[in-house]
Design a protein around this nucleic acid. Sequence first.
DNA 1: CTGTTAGCGCATTCAA
DNA 2: TTGAATGCGCTAACAG
Lengths: 350, 350
Amino acid sequence: MPDTRRITSADVARHAGVSRATVSYVLNATPGQSISPATRDRVLRAAAGLGYAPSAAARTLRTGRSDVVLCLLPDWPIGNEVGDLLGNLSTALAREGLTFVVHPGSRADRPIAEIWKAITPAAVLSFTDFSDAETEAMRAAGVALVVALLGRAGRHGRELEVPQQLVGRRQAEHLLATGHTRLGYAYPDDPRLQIFAEPRLAGVRAVVDRQPATPVGEGGAPEPAVVVRDGGAPGPEPLVEVVPLDVAPAAAAVERWRAAGVTGVCAYNDEVALAVLAGARALAMTGLAVIGVDDIPAARLAVPPLTTVTTDQRTLAAHLATTVVAAVSGRPAPILHTADLIRVVVRDSA
Amino acid sequence: MPDTRRITSADVARHAGVSRATVSYVLNATPGQSISPATRDRVLRAAAGLGYAPSAAARTLRTGRSDVVLCLLPDWPIGNEVGDLLGNLSTALAREGLTFVVHPGSRADRPIAEIWKAITPAAVLSFTDFSDAETEAMRAAGVALVVALLGRAGRHGRELEVPQQLVGRRQAEHLLATGHTRLGYAYPDDPRLQIFAEPRLAGVRAVVDRQPATPVGEGGAPEPAVVVRDGGAPGPEPLVEVVPLDVAPAAAAVERWRAAGVTGVCAYNDEVALAVLAGARALAMTGLAVIGVDDIPAARLAVPPLTTVTTDQRTLAAHLATTVVAAVSGRPAPILHTADLIRVVVRDSA
DNA sequence: CTGTTAGCGCATTCAA
DNA sequence: TTGAATGCGCTAACAG
């Protein structure tokens, strides 16, 4: 078996008859270095011919940062949609030469520091907030960007906040448009989902109140503008009920809605919506409009088929990717165009 | 702001009044090196006091391998259960000092080589097969273990093969035990799921034929025991129908089953099972027994509530983790005890 | 038995 | 364009 030593930049240099420094300059297209096209070509040719691939470890050691973007997953169950988002994000970042990896598993297992120290990432993404100390530690260790996609405090990030609110808005708008004035909100049972549920509920409230909850489009703007009532006549508050994924408690919630005159329910997601449907069925109650979120496969197969709201994960992922790339290369963050991001899929349930 | 330089082993050495070599020996508990308890203690104290954390990049550069285990996800949508498995795997590997990361996104985006080269992993896991060239390249680059969890060729791995077969077996056994003799199999529409579907279907066939399909338990054992027909009378082949996640085509499949006298259907997973249920409902057909896989939240909320089969992801993950750790440290692979791995959750649909 | 010296692994980048 | 230093930890060879 032939000797399988790694091919290093020194090999390339030797073959091209230049120094390793030159090789580095050529391969990295280092700005401010003038290399003659001839040498340049020799180097490129040698590199290709030898099948040279730089050592990620050495590069990381030297520059203090790898080309990896790390995403920390929360410990609660992630659904298909998040999986989708991650896939798209991976694709989008790949286009920019960044490798996207995800770390599943709770923070409880290991201090998060151990995770990023093992990777030396260029950027770290998370759904929940980091403590200030953690953020500071990462920054100090050379991580270019630390983003909490959601969460309350986060002075950086919350890149998912607006889309989540929009989800709630679209739900409420659809129900209002179909003649329902008294709305209910089916809140998830699992407290860990609160971080997603709150902005969605806020979106619903915003529509019912005829008031924007939080400005759309933040980008790198220093301070999100303050909420302004626009003076429209506020409708009644949506009646919030926690709905576990079980028929009996769901039926109880439906009963309470009925008593309060609620005719349309925005559910946290399709699963919760399915529970509401099951609850209504158990009560033999018809005519309650329900709208979910995500359009999971089971939604179209439900009785009745579930009306729901979907997000264009591809666009969202592209935006997130651009944000990350911008931060890593020191450019300003882009703004998110939310126009067609969220769509209502109308079926029979609402 | 205080100078935030990294703390290196040299710093620890200086503070402890020893050489860097000694620090390394102490911190790695290098076998075959005797260091006096006194020195040892000084080093440990200094390291702790300074908050020393070794540079993963330098370590990787030197040893040629990081402490990261990389899992490549297929490009098809992964469900909650796989997410669950990954989470448990992460936890189990963390206990062994390994960092688990997942790369979502299709192989089409980027040659897979770019991904592992960016990480320099200790092990690479994948659901689908690698080409021999890929496997060889990784081996040569120092990856200790390359496992394809599923797939046909894989001379290494297929660690998930047996559990998947077992899933099918449990489904069929349940249906047979409840008096159904003529079975159908609801095959998924998406061809990418074939890799999971085939072993499951094989499990069903094995039960119907009264013959084990593939030996249980492979581990590092030299030769898996051979398949033995037990001479029972083989029942009729399960009638396989592809069932898309839509009511109309699902109804068509149900119709064909009815015509063939099928009374019990094993579905690829809960979603497919839900489609079968929806199809039967569309036909106003009652009495068709359906059993799914995964126990997704929608299963219990279905009409009728869906009987399904679940896997103990925790146990499975622990086994996978042990396998990885064994390979990385050169020990023999463990064997999987499949006794209570798969359970039937009985509800109304079967 | 204890601990040290010295050089390696590989690419980046400053100063010449 | 290049030589040489740098980032950080590992480990074979060796001295006390």
